[in-house]
């Protein structure tokens, strides 16, 4: 017994200590990267938000005030009261804030209507997407028919057409139809950039639902249409939510096509109005940032509330393994 080699206990302690140190280092690396990532993502947005609550006097300080010293709601007030009684202009505002360059564009009163326009367009696009996309996805996922693969590839190909390649023909057709500067022109053209994605996500989801459901429903005397409405739709809520979200956000955020087809406040969407503010060098910075915040808040809230659906939807559009 005594001459058996004894494992020196030092080794084990060393191993344990190394493991412990390794774990601490790992924790530290995770902590630091998490902080860095949060800063990277949130710093630009925080700066935008902070600026929106500063007065024009404060916003032009050098170096900048990272946190407003005298937070104000006046920039938002200017947006929400614009066009109510008296137009908010350089004169009416400079009376209260003597700082130079405190200029609210006369188009400020179009901001809320443009949000309404964005909302209307996005809602209509969502509805049309569902009407068109759901039956198509069901057919491709659950019905074996001649030309099924061709349809899949056709839809995928339409998904990669760059929007800018559609601008010239769209413009000419829409002008010919007399639809320039109407919300209808946006609803129609936005279908091109939303429908392929919608169908694609829905196909993926429907494929995951068992074929037996379809067969059982049909044996019970359902038509294809009834099977879709009564059996599949209630089961596909998560994917429908994802589709609604993507379609809504895409329409709400779209800029290029809206830039081509809208001219007046009758059809201008929020991004168009924002862009018009940025190209005007006289517009007050604080007002501009407040308008920016208004454009950012709705989609960000939607994204945070529906995070789970969005991530699973985006993942469905990805390649597994």
């Amino acid at each position: 017994m005594s001459d058996m080699p004894i494992t020196p206990p030092v080794d084990r302690i060393d191993y344990r200590r190394r493991q412990k140190i390794g774990r601490i280092v790992q924790r530290l690396v995770i902590l630091i990267s998490a902080i860095l990532l949060t800063a990277y993502v949130l710093a630009p947005v925080s700066w935008l938000v902070s600026s929106a609550f500063q007065t024009e006097t404060e916003i032009v300080s050098i170096p900048p005030h990272w946190i407003p010293e005298h937070p104000t709601l006046r920039n938002f007030e200017a947006i929400f009261t614009a066009g109510n009684d008296e137009p908010v202009t350089y004169e009416t505002r400079s009376g209260t804030d003597p700082a130079a360059g405190d200029f609210i564009p006369s188009t400020a009163e179009n901001l809320l209507p443009s949000m309404a326009n964005s909302l209307i367009v996005a809602t209509l696009v969502v509805i049309l997407n569902l009407l068109v996309g759901v039956p198509a996805a069901y057919a491709i996922a659950k019905i074996r028919f001649w030309g099924r693969n061709a349809s899949v590839y056709f839809i995928l190909i339409t998904r990669v057409i760059p929007d800018i390649a559609l601008v010239v023909p769209f413009f000419l057709v829409i002008r010919k139809l007399g639809m320039l500067d109407t919300l209808g022109s946006l609803v129609i053209t936005y279908l091109a950039i939303t429908v392929p994605f919608t169908v694609f996500i829905l196909i993926q989801y429907f494929e995951g639902l068992p074929d037996e459901l379809d067969k059982a429903a049909r044996v019970d005397g359902c038509s294809r249409f009834q099977a879709l409405i009564k059996v599949f739709l209630p089961l596909s809520m998560p994917s429908l939510v994802a589709v609604v979200l993507f379609t809504f956000l895409t329409s709400w955020n779209e800029f290029l096509l809206a830039l081509m087809f809208t001219q007046t406040s009758a059809s201008q969407t929020l991004p168009i109005l924002l862009a018009s503010f940025t190209s005007d060098f006289t517009v007050s910075f604080s007002f501009l940032n407040a308008a920016g915040v208004l454009a950012v808040v709705p989609p960000v809230i939607v994204a945070i509330v529906f995070e789970r659906y969005i991530v699973s939807g985006l993942t469905a559009g990805a390649v597994k393994g």
Binding site: P44, A275, L288, V296, V300, I304
Partner: peptide
């Protein structure tokens, strides 16, 4: 953290552009 990460994704490109234009601003 993964929820926060969705913020840039959700922001409209125009608002993103406005934000960076303000960040890069030469005077303020």
């Amino acid at each position: 953290l993964s929820t926060i990460l969705l913020v840039p994704w959700a922001i409209p490109y125009v608002a993103n552009a406005l934000m960076w234009k303000w960040i890069y601003d030469s005077s303020y």
